[in-house]
Design a protein around this nucleic acid. Structure first.
Lengths: 141, 141
DNA sequence: TATGTTATTGCAAAAAGTTGCAATAAGGAG
DNA sequence: CTCCTTATTGCAACTTTTTGCAATAACATA
């Protein structure tokens, strides 16, 4: 299934329009499969779609995140990176070498329930990044 | 105990210097007790210390965070806010009204142990922000 | 108390991200 | 297929954050 076929109905269903810009950006996220910074997205997407502006990239990434097609993640420097939305997961990142691994959401379920009953909040967010030292960097300490 | 008396030895112990800029910024964080953005810190601190630059504020906040005197927190918009380092805690923030509450670190201890044994990482970071809907905003849904 | 070392700051310029508004184009209706 | 509405984009100006480098000042030592 092409990106257009996959994502257009999702936008339409919410009353939004599919545009060449959104498609190009979704395409980049979809096929990269990794976290990308806005400027990485801009760089890749504008190769396919000349005339794309960085403003649009910023706005589109935020838009896609709000509508569940992309996930924003903090990667420790206070800035966002984005990835295509797949299964819910979190990240664990090494403070020293930057190595990064996925954490299944299931591991957090208990905590989420505990927080909800303690606070009365309903937790909505699917992305948390934890920081630590990876096994390798622990040796070098 | 004054800010100078409290924080100077902590910097010295690590081989760093106390400066009027660092003191002014620590003073602001210490007495505000809340999260502040870099520009809020700049605004308050430069009232006490004319000539302070924003560059220095950014650099100092990062420096203080690295050395455990301040804590950075993601507050959901991709930017950092800072607060003076007290006990370890986390935050739970409402996506709608922005209301914010503290989460005791003890609640995360089990999860941290679980993550460590599952990953081999040693978790170092003390700040995580969770997002959800506060009891009030859940009603209005 | 004066001196030397070097951590720290300020400045200027660049990079990254945001905002308002007029022009454009997606896509429903005729 | 054409027209109309309005969501979306691009532009330009602006705000926020980062970086390199020379000048400054903290403080250890004598």
């Amino acid at each position: 299934m092409s990106c257009a076929e996959e994502y257009t109905p999702q936008l339409r269903a919410r009353g939004y329009r599919m545009t060449s810009q959104r498609l190009a950006i979704l395409h980049v996220l979809h096929h990269s499969g990794k976290h990308l910074t806005p400027s990485q997205v801009y760089e890749k997407a504008s190769r396919k779609l000349g005339g794309l502006t960085e403003t649009t990239v910023y706005r589109t990434l935020e838009f896609l995140a709000e509508n569940g097609l992309a996930r924003p993640a903090h990667m420790g420097n206070g800035h966002f990176v984005y990835e295509i939305a797949r299964h819910e997961h979190h990240h664990l990142k090494c403070r020293i070498c930057g190595d990064e691994m996925e954490v299944k959401h299931a591991l957090l379920e208990k905590l989420y329930r505990k927080l909800e009953s303690a606070s009365g909040y309903r937790l909505t967010d699917s992305h948390v990044t934890f920081f630590g030292l990876c096994p390798n960097c622990q040796k070098g300490e």
